[in-house]
Design a protein around this nucleic acid. Structure first.
Lengths: 346, 346
DNA sequence: TCTGAAATCTGGAGCGCTCCACTGTCGCGC
DNA sequence: GCGCGACAGTGGAGCGCTCCAGATTTCAGA
């Protein structure tokens, strides 16, 4: 009976400490695997006493369900993939809110970031490989619709801009409203030469651009419309600042692509001896944790990150559970926050 | 031979588009699953022609290996888990460099962030549940060693501070060197009243604190040593600034916990009418993408993010492949970058 | 022609889990 | 005393993959 050739020892801490499996818990509690599974998932079908016993055994073994196996067995992962850019503070804001929103609906969240040498495609590939059932794209190139087209295989929600592919949801800020408020504010202060630094392919930029044009026209400032090509980062702001400085005659106000761009612009202008907001007023966009700090103190358009996160998650999950909904578009609120970088023109 | 009752149709796009499995690829290519597996993993054992055929079939079906199943079958996930804080720009910097470093060693990276309502414990739990084989902790509370102690079950590398648990690797900046350079710089400018805002439980803070003390003593400034409790964010900087302002007599220089703290401090001081660097010089720590921008233009200690990332990944993987190495400590370089927030005292 | 080794390919077991169909055991009403 | 439903618990199949131990073919060398 004991001619055991098998080493029966309790996982000797040799190399790999051997993670406890459900079967281990079952043995220890003296029940079947199935029952352990039921108890741990908090489902009915187990007696109170047994339940106690199983929980205790699991605890003692430091058992931790293997989500890979769960996925495989369930055929579902209950996991949402989020594609983000680590450098965009606004993304951080949204992701922070995605976690609880997803948890509440019983979903897990996997993050994947774009990085140098790791493009959207690779990053989403990783997500898909890990069996994310749906994707929330905080970053997505509107031109190569490739990423977004994944929507064909996986429910996808694009954040920050309108989706261009049918069957893909989109959650974005009411850019028109935000931009209008910004332009109204500047115009009310008496500004006329209000230029806009464009966010390039960044999310929301296209909408902000056209909203800017529309708002300018509303103020009968169509002649003053000017869009400087840019991007959503500090460098773009600096470049735009240099450009403006080189032209000799400055506008009296600038609506930047986002906060980062605004900060770069402010840097460039101030370095060039320009007083902000005395000579030039600047309005940002995002209201990340930077804008209200430092003596940056930026007037900016606040986006509703928690709301965006919540809608993105909800849309993804609904699409997951329903199947084939038409592509929906959700607009979240935008609100101008006036701080210290705007003032009447000289 | 063709009494096929099986509906042989190509995956009708019904509800779930049904992801292609390895068996599908095998059928289509007319080979066994095993062979498909071999080919796709680029292992020897398949003829050139067959290989071609399999690759083509996989391509056509849009096949994508299911990493959950792979993990399960392999018993290994080849995945590294990274615990980070989305708000810490320095973390972003490190993570960006972790991706390529891990990829080069054939490892996948999973990100998990702490967020309100999602503490270290939950975040690492998620990583472990997804079968990460090793953890890189960019955030870790040195007091509750709980997180770090995971090292017992999973190879762990703590970034940014010394590990306090045996068998856990640590990769951090040569804080002593960085801080010494900062203090030297200030002392050389003629400063004597140099206070330090402490980073609290943040990574590296303990070391920076003691390095500050040591550096001050080296300059025979022991009597001037003063550490203000703080944290690694803007709020802490603001709080420290308010505190200093309320005291009436300001120090002539401040070494902040990190860049964010420095920015907050600068904000508070300038709001209080203090000239930086005229009245007070400020030195930060990190050199994220903020410090050299805006008219922040912060003198700061640069940490070597790519180096840190590379070492962290390498240590984790080595420990993974070797088993039981002693805990190692790797120091990466630090270098003072002098910009515009430091000047001789009045 | 036979042997044997290399090259190519196959089937089955099994990773840790969930789900389904099933077996016992009660207790209760008729 | 019998049937019946509710509850407690079990065992096996199978998720998509990798690995192991063969099976089959090919071809050189004796």
């Amino acid at each position: 009976m004991d001619e055991a050739l098998e080493p029966q020892q309790e996982a000797a801490p040799k190399g790999a400490p051997q993670r406890a499996t459900m079967a281990d818990v079952a043995t220890r509690a003296g029940v079947s695997r199935t029952l352990v599974s039921l108890v741990l998932r908090d489902r009915p079908g187990a007696g109170a006493a047994t339940r106690e016993r199983v929980l205790k055994a699991a605890e003692e073994l430091g058992y931790r369900p293997d989500s890979a196996a769960q996925m495989l067995a369930r055929g579902r992962s209950r996991t949402l993939g989020v594609l983000m850019n680590l450098e965009q503070p606004f993304h951080a804001e949204v992701v922070k809110a995605i976690y609880p929103a997803a948890a509440q609906l019983g979903y897990d969240v996997l993050l994947s970031a774009v990085a140098p040498g790791r493009d959207e495609h690779m990053a989403t590939g990783a997500l898909l490989g890990h069996r994310c059932e749906a994707l929330v794209l905080l970053v997505s190139d509107p031109e190569s619709h490739a990423t977004e087209r994944l929507g064909g295989s996986v429910p996808t929600v694009v954040v920050g801009r309108k989706a261009t592919t049918p069957g893909v949801d989109s959650v974005h800020t009411a850019e028109a409203k935000g931009v209008r408020q910004a332009v109204d504010h500047l115009a009310d202060l008496g500004h006329r030469r209000i230029v806009h630094i464009d966010g390039g392919k960044g999310p929301g930029s296209a909408d902000r651009r056209s909203a800017y044009r529309a708002a300018m026209r509303r103020h009968r400032l169509a002649d003053e419309i000017r869009v400087i090509p840019g991007a959503q980062d500090e460098d773009a702001g600096i470049a735009a600042g240099m450009l403006l400085l080189s032209e000799g005659e400055l506008p009296t106000a600038v609506l930047a692509a986002n906060d980062r761009c605004a900060i770069g612009l402010m840097h460039a202008l101030r370095s060039g001896g320009v007083d902000v907001p005395g000579d030039v007023s600047i309005v940002g966009y995002d209201d990340g944790n930077l804008s209200h700090l430092s003596h940056i103190n930026l007037t900016t358009v606040r986006q509703d990150a928690p709301g965006i996160a919540e809608h993105a998650v909800r849309n993804a999950v609904e699409r997951l559970e329903n199947g084939s909904l038409p592509g929906r578009e959700t607009e979240c609120d935008a609100k101008l926050v006036v701080r210290a970088t705007t003032a009447p023109p000289r």
